[in-house]
Design a protein around this nucleic acid. Sequence first.
DNA 1: CGAGGCCTTGATCCCAGTCAAGTGTCGTGG
DNA 2: CCACGACACTTGACTGGGATCAAGGCCTCG
Lengths: 247, 247
Amino acid sequence: MPPLDFDSHKIEHLADLKSPQCRNCDIVREIAFCADLSHDEVKRLAAVRCHATLPASFTVFREGDLVDHVYSISNGAVKLYKLLPDGRRQIIGFLFSGDIFGLGTNDGYCYTAETITATQVCRFTHRKLDSLLDEIPRLERRMFNMAVKDLVAAQEQMLLLGRKTAREKVATFLVKLSMRAERAGQPGSPVALPMSRADIADYLGLTIETVSRTFTQLKRDNIIGLPDSGHCVLNDWQALKELAEGA
Amino acid sequence: MPPLDFDSHKIEHLADLKSPQCRNCDIVREIAFCADLSHDEVKRLAAVRCHATLPASFTVFREGDLVDHVYSISNGAVKLYKLLPDGRRQIIGFLFSGDIFGLGTNDGYCYTAETITATQVCRFTHRKLDSLLDEIPRLERRMFNMAVKDLVAAQEQMLLLGRKTAREKVATFLVKLSMRAERAGQPGSPVALPMSRADIADYLGLTIETVSRTFTQLKRDNIIGLPDSGHCVLNDWQALKELAEGA
DNA sequence: CGAGGCCTTGATCCCAGTCAAGTGTCGTGG
DNA sequence: CCACGACACTTGACTGGGATCAAGGCCTCG
């Protein structure tokens, strides 16, 4: 919560690593937006990036801060949010391994980024990234596609926030988390809920109490199971899916 | 409303126009994403585009339709929306001159696009646009920046939908419309409201009745004036701005 | 063992939704 | 010219889903 400096944490210049199996490439390849680049292109990326491990609840940057870096999550979970002056909060997104954040206009970041769990990130300065984009056209295309994907997700979230009921919102949230986990090669159920009820509430446009009540209600209906507040078993995928789609 | 075919309307291949002042370039230059391209680059764009005038309430494409074209608005107004099976609707955005739409993943458009007023658009096939992007790197950069801008706007809309009150939502809507009009060189007040109350409601996550009541309430407080339902005078910009920001 | 989080649950309240008229405007046809 | 219906918008009365207020339970950590 206090503005710990990013650099006060373990940051390694990848160039310093000299393991025989070219660990450089293995590690950098984890970064989503260079997943299909050539060996040489990955090397150029590696030269300009920094790696760091951040503790839980660490504020990476705040809304309005000068935009200087773009971040990529190697491991962990991050939430992005916007605040109103009186403290009302809207979480814009939960990010996990492979996601990037820190894009924005030139008048400051437009959201605050905070780790949920301990998180490994790597970062690039915007300046260096820009020159890389010029050098590697495929990288630019890839960034563009990621932005479009984010935009599509944001539009679905607008439908959720504007038109879905509490029950539908929670169902949608669980369905998407589960699908995301499967895409990452993890089981779709039980799904991990690393974020707090307050975070879920601020993501779905609800209150903590309503989120909690809705979870209990879905559990009572045997649609989900809650072994503990950090995990959720999806008992009835079909019912959840239908709820999520507003049927 | 009936699925009139796009091509049943006046569509002109720009290549067919041969006016002495190179109207080609003038017209194509209106297209936002090629605003700062060279003469030669504009020519290449012109060669692959189609121009059309569409009537009001014309469905350009539906959510789920095969993605084949990208559109740019020369003149007029368009709304993009998503539907739930039971008819609940969320308007994703209102677009005006200079805006583009039709980007999406390869599994169909993710929203429906419908004209509000009579609208002039030009369109490109995705296939041709892709090859253009390869030829003109600056175009790709520009498209990327537009996607990021859209993303930032979507995130602000999430804050509105999830956390603002009806009064704050309407104030935000009016402030943004006014600023948009000024950027387009039109007066910031009175601002035109070409869309219906139903459209405004579905954009702000409210009902028609609440939108109407909120307008009357703001009018009673002398914050706005409503000469007719299609125009809004912003009497107290300061008050509106503060409302919009949730102060 | 006690303090402080975080989560759940219950009781009550209120903002926005729903239902139901009523008003104004426009276009059509007698 | 007016009568009429269609449609969009407004207004009023009432309802209800989720917010607010208030405990209470259950961890973890010192």
